[in-house]
Simulated scan of single mutants.
Amino acid sequence: MKPLRPALLAALLACATPLPALAANLKATVSQAFQSMLYLPLYVAIDEGLFEKAGLDVTKETAGAPSVALSAVISKSAQFSIHGPEWTAVAASKGAPVNVVANVVNGAAVWIATAPDFPWTDVKSLKGQTIVTGLMPTTSTSLFLKLLKENGMSKDDVTLTQVALGTEPGPFLAGQAKVAVMYEPGLDQVVAKGMKVVLGFPEKYGPYAFSAVSARKDVDPAVAQAFVNGMQAAIRLMQAEPARAVAVAKREFPNLDPAVVEAAVKRMMSEKVYPDSVDISKEALTLGLDTQIALGNLAAQPDYASFVRRDFIAKAVAGN
C-alpha cells in the first residue's frame, strides 16, 4: 500500500476535524425616527445580543423624523424603520410597497400632567386653559385633540402652546401653563418636580398600535424573520427581567437622571405601553389609525391581512 501524499493527507485530516460553527452573515439596518424610550425593545434586542442570537447583525441609525426613517426603507438604504404605523399606512395608500412586521409600542403612550394646585375633575376642567404640547404632527397632540372632541370640546376651547418634541417640560415647569400633554421621559421629569399625572391614555384606550417595525414587501424573508425573532426575544426578556430592561435604558439615555429613567420604564411597563409580544391585533391597529383618520391624515383603514405580516409574527411568537 503506497503512503499517502502529504497534501492528500492534510486534506483528509481537515475533513475529519470538526469545523467551528459558521457565523451568521445576515445583516440589516434599522432606521428609528428618534432615540426614544418608547423603542426600548429595540435597544434591549441590540444591547443584550438578541439579534445576534437570532443570526442577524443589526446597525441602528437615527433619522430624526418618522417620514425620513420610512423613506430609508422605501429607498432600500435600510431594511426596517420604527415609528408610528400611520406613516406606513399613508405611504402604502399612495402606492409605496411597505407594511408592518412587528409591534414595538402597544399603548397610547401619552399622559396629561398638571401643576399640583390645578383643580382637575375631568377633561372639561381644561376649558380656557393654556396647554403645552408637542408640535404637530405628533401623536400626543393628535390624541389630545381626539380627547377634546370625545368630550364635546375643540381646540378652540383651549390655547395650545406647541413646542418641539422633548422640550415640553421647559415651559411647563417655568409656569407658562398649568397643563401639559407629554411623552416619557418628560412626564417623569416633571413628576419628579412635583407635577401630578391626571390622565393616562394607555389606561383610557387599552391596546393601541402606537409604534411598529415597518419593512418593504420584498424584504429578504430570512432577514425579516431574524429581526422579528430578535424583537420577540427582547420583549420576553423585558417581561421576565424588568431590571435588565431598566439597565439598558440607563445605558441608552446616560444624560438623564437614572431615577427618572427607571420611573419612566416602570410606568410604561406597568401600564402595558410595551407589548406582550410582537403581535399587532386588528383592534389595536384600527384604534391607532382611527385617530389619524379622524384628523384627516389618513383616508381609510388599510387591509389588515396584507398590511400586517403575520407570517413573521406567528413564527417569532411560536419560537420564543
Rank of each mutant, 00 (worst) to 15 (best):
A305R: 05
A233Q: 06
V265G: 12
N297E: 12
P85M: 11
K53G: 04
A316Q: 04
K196F: 13
D279A: 14
R244H: 11
P137D: 02
S93K: 07
V219C: 03
G206Q: 11
S142W: 08
A21F: 06
V260C: 03
A164P: 04
Q32W: 05
Q189A: 03
G107N: 04
I46A: 15
P202F: 11
P185T: 11
A91T: 07
P275V: 06
E184V: 03
L287P: 00
C15T: 14
P207D: 10
M37C: 01
E150V: 13
S277P: 06
G186W: 00
M153D: 09
M269K: 15
G200Q: 08
V110S: 09
W111R: 14
V68C: 02
T138V: 13
A28R: 09
W111K: 06
G55F: 10
A72N: 09
G152F: 10
L22D: 13
Y205N: 15
D220F: 12
Q79T: 04
I131K: 05
K2R: 15
N320S: 13
T88I: 06
V190S: 02
V265H: 12
A305E: 10
Y43W: 04
D57Q: 07
G194T: 13
V265I: 13
L145Y: 06
V198S: 11
V248P: 03
A284D: 12
K193H: 04
L173D: 07
V123W: 07
V261I: 01
V248S: 06
V197D: 08
S281Y: 05
A65L: 00
G64N: 09
L42S: 14
S77V: 02
L26W: 09
Q162W: 08
R310E: 12
E271I: 04
L135S: 10
R267H: 15
G55W: 02
A33K: 08
D122R: 14
S277A: 12
I313V: 14
S125I: 01
G186Q: 10
A318M: 10
S270A: 14
M195L: 05
Y274D: 01
V191Q: 11
D276K: 14
A259L: 14
F144Y: 03
Q239K: 14
L38S: 11
L237C: 12
E271D: 01
A11E: 14
V246K: 14
M195W: 03
M1F: 10
T130M: 10
A109I: 03
G152D: 03
Q79E: 08
V223F: 00
A233F: 06
I46H: 02
P221E: 02
A264I: 06
R216A: 02
V190Y: 00
